[in-house]
Every structure is written in C-alpha cells, then in structure tokens.
Design a protein around this nucleic acid. Sequence first.
DNA 1: CCAAAGATCTACT
DNA 2: GTAGATCTTTGGG
Length: 198
Amino acid sequence: MGLPSPKRVLLRRAFFDRPPQTVAPDLLGKILVHRIGDTILSGRIVETEAYLGLDDPASHAYTGLSAANEVLFGTTGLAHVYLIYGLHHCLSISAHAKGHAGGVLLRALLPMEGIDMMSRLRGKPGKTDAGWLTGGPGRIGQALGINRSTHNGLDVTRKASTLWVADDGFGCGSISITKRIGITKAADHPLRFVCQQV
DNA sequence: CCAAAGATCTACT
DNA sequence: GTAGATCTTTGGG
C-alpha cells in the first residue's frame, strides 16, 4: 500500500542543450539510474558542478577537442566517464549550448534502489550510510558500477543505454551554491550546486 | 621519451 | 591533517 509511486519520465535532450551552469542546478532532485541485468541501481542527484568548456580552465574541455574529452563537444546528454588519479571513475554529463562544450559533474546521490548491491560494489556489504555510499564523484562511480570502457559516450536520455536520468517530479527544495571542490584552476566561481532539502 | 598533474578516496598519525 | 594509491593524458625536451 502506501502512496502511489511517482511516475518517472526520461529527461529529454533539450534539457542538456543549455549552458552547464543552468543545467547543473536543474539536475538536482533528478534520478540517476543504472540497470545491470535485472538489477536497478538508482539514486537522487543532490550535488552537481558545472564545467564550462573552452572558457573554463578547470574544464576537461579547456584544452580543446581530444580523444579523452570528445564527449564534452557535440551531442549533449552523453555520459563523460573518466578515470581520475588512476583509481576513481567519475561521471559527468555533456551539457552546453549549440556550438559550445561543457558538462555537469555528478558529485553526490541519495541512494534509492539497489542499496545492497551498491554497498557490495563499494567493498563493504551491509554498510549503507548514504554519505559513504554515494557521497562523492568517485563513490558514485564505484557504487553504481560505472567505468569508462563500458559507459563513456552513452546517451543518458535513452533507457536502452542502461544508464539514464529520470524525473519523478520531486525535484529539490532549496539549493545552496558554492565554489567547486578539488580543483586548483578557476576555483573561485560559484558553480557547485547542493540540494539542501529533497 | 619522460615528467607531472589530475573534476579523488582511504588509511594512518 | 597528511600521505599514499595508481594510471591516463598532456606538455616539454
């Protein structure tokens, strides 16, 4: 029983056809979903950062088009998955106005479905604390089983990708905006968005 | 070719 | 609070 489950709809490509600093706050409250076989792993997005492309020294797109960052140029709504410090797979989604480049890094989720598989993937079965499980870009990658070779370039506006973003209408109550974390260049811009209430 | 840095996390002092 | 892990990509010689 209980309340009816809210209907989830896929985000459309047009959602991502806007500057990253506009898309990043709008992604708060949306749901990232990864299907592995019959198992669904999902969580509500509660922290994002915008990376502005060619004009942003902190962006992976700053130095221009290359094999490593091609997802950030061209079609929007694609998964940009990269390995950082040789250890952590992080997920961002390409977002920019036509003719530009850029993306939005997913920094934290509130886990929804598949929590025990997430805790297993994180290496401590049974440990389900949300902050530990999916609080941080590297933790999201590990908890959801995301890696560059499998997921880089997937279209998150299509369920067939097995990795997608949906909207169940809940959104995010109040948003706080701060400087971005973990960067040394262009560190002073207010481009980090955190969901305070869900 | 080699060196260095990187949109990070964990463990240990 | 600081250091170590571990590897891809980039920039300099």
